[in-house]
């Protein structure tokens, strides 16, 4: 039973990575990061259920900590997206800026 969750976690993580790279809209990227995070949390919780006796409390505590960190990062990211949108008018990152010598300082 726990292996189902382990594999589910792996799939969520992969989906998140894909969406983070493939999706252009910043809100979708931030959601993708959250999907990745959920994948990791699922793996941790599944690991806690393995073994004998009551579930291992340590991964539960780690996941609680991780959730709060994820909430904080998400909230800050959303605030940053709003600023990017307000200043540049777009909620996308400019394409191919890369190593070009772009203006602005």
């Amino acid at each position: 039973m726990t292996s189902l969750y382990l594999i589910g976690g792996a799939i969520l993580f992969g989906l998140g990575v894909h969406a983070l790279v493939a999706r252009a809209h910043l809100v979708l990227k931030v959601l993708a990061v959250n999907v990745m995070g959920s994948g990791v949390f699922m793996v941790l919780l599944a690991a806690a259920a393995g073994g004998e006796g009551d579930p291992d409390p340590v991964p539960h505590a780690l996941v609680l900590t991780g959730i709060v960190v994820a909430v904080s990062a998400t909230a800050f990211a959303l605030a940053l997206i709003l600023r990017v949108k307000a200043v540049t008018g777009r909620a996308h990152l400019p394409e191919g800026e890369g190593d070009a010598e772009s203006g602005g300082s």
Binding site: T2, S3, I7, A10, V43, A47, G50, G51, D56, V58
Partner: peptide, 10 residues
Amino acid sequence: LWSLPETQGL
């Protein structure tokens, strides 16, 4: 992950 043995953790 599938092939991991279960541990007692902490």
